[in-house]
Amino acid sequence: MTEYKLVVVGAGGVGKSALTIQLIQNHFVDEYDPTIEDSYRKQVVIDGETCLLDILDTAGQEEYSAMRDQYMRTGEGFLCVFAINNTKSFEDIHHYREQIKRVKDSEDVPMVLVGNKCDLPSRTVDTKQAQDLARSYGIPFIETSAKTRQGVDDAFYTLVREIRKHKEKMSKDGKKKKKKSKTKCVIM
């Protein structure tokens, strides 16, 4: 069974824990209790493949930012979460993405942009803004509501699919490099 290491990042209060708990335990946590770091595991079937999701729910508070490099190193894919009623959390996505790329030393890291709290009427981040940002990053965008469960499975499952595509691409690139290195030079 394939294991996928997913990391949920975003500013404090955007609903990272609520999304994760909704996926794992099928219930909505409405009281806000700032996370330092929590880890969850769940076995699911995605596109006919049974897999184990190892999900790291991270601290959004700035005082825990020193811990970010460590979990970013171990993560295979990242859910970059903002709240649709919090423009600052949307603007912060850029910083999370840049930090992930720096730590992973790669421009090509599996990510999904997630606009959470889409059940709320007080939207300050337009869907088109988020779609445009995701398009500019070359990553999928999904709106979710941890409260109603809308888009929750889709967000995590899409990230797994992005990781699969990335692994497939990397193995193809690896095979191309191996083929090239088999060419021999004969000096007579």
Rank of each mutant, 00 (worst) to 15 (best):
I21W: 15
L79D: 01
D108N: 11
K172M: 12
V125G: 11
K176T: 09
R73P: 03
R135V: 06
R102V: 08
Q43V: 10
D154T: 07
R41G: 00
G13N: 06
L133Y: 07
S136P: 14
V9P: 07
V109F: 13
M170A: 15
E37K: 01
D30K: 05
V114L: 12
Y40M: 14
Y137T: 06
G15V: 03
G151P: 14
V152P: 13
I24T: 04
V14Y: 14
K88G: 12
E62F: 03
K167A: 09
C185Y: 05
K5W: 06
L52W: 01
E63K: 02
K16W: 02
V45T: 12
K178S: 09
L56R: 02
L23P: 00
S17Y: 02
D57C: 00
I55Y: 14
D108A: 09
I24C: 05
V8C: 03
H166R: 08
L79C: 10
A130C: 11
K172F: 12
Q129C: 12
D105K: 14
Q70R: 04
D38V: 00
E98M: 09
E49I: 04
K179S: 07
I100V: 12
D108T: 05
L53D: 01
Q61M: 03
L19P: 00
K175I: 13
K184Q: 12
V152M: 11
E37M: 15
G48V: 04
D126N: 10
L120C: 12
D92G: 05
R164M: 12
E49P: 10
Y64W: 08
T127R: 06
N26P: 01
A66T: 13
L159N: 03
L52C: 06
T74P: 05
G138A: 05
N26M: 06
F156A: 14
E76L: 15
D108Y: 05
D153C: 08
I46D: 11
K165F: 09
K88M: 12
A130H: 06
G77K: 01
K104E: 02
G138R: 09
Y157E: 13
L6H: 01
L56V: 08
E143V: 01
K117G: 11
K128C: 07
P110A: 03
L120E: 14
I93W: 08
L159F: 01
Q131P: 08
I163C: 14
K180L: 10
K101F: 06
E63D: 05
V186K: 02
M188T: 08
A66H: 11
Y64E: 10
A155Y: 15
L159Y: 01
D92N: 11
H27N: 08
K128A: 05
K172T: 14
D154W: 05
Y157S: 12
V152E: 11
K167E: 11
G60P: 14
Q25A: 09
K147E: 06
F82R: 00
G75H: 04
I36C: 09
P110G: 02
F28T: 01
C51F: 08
E168F: 06
T74Q: 13
D47Q: 05
D105F: 14
Q129Y: 11
T127C: 08
I46P: 14
A11N: 05
L120V: 13
N86I: 02
H27Q: 13
D173A: 11
V186Y: 14
K128E: 07
A130M: 11
G12I: 01
I187M: 07
V186D: 10
V114C: 04
R149A: 10
K176D: 13
S181E: 07
L19R: 00
S145L: 03
P110S: 04
D47A: 04
T124W: 08
S89A: 14
E62D: 11
D30W: 03
L159C: 06
K16L: 15
D153K: 08
V109L: 04
G10I: 01
I100M: 05
I24E: 00
S122K: 09
V114W: 07
I21V: 03
D57V: 00
T58N: 04
S136D: 14
M67L: 10
Y71T: 14
M72R: 01
I93A: 11
A130D: 05
L19Y: 15
R161G: 08
V44D: 05
T127V: 07
L79N: 03
R68C: 03
K117C: 13
V8S: 01
D119T: 15
V7K: 01
V14R: 15
R123A: 12
V7C: 03
K104D: 10
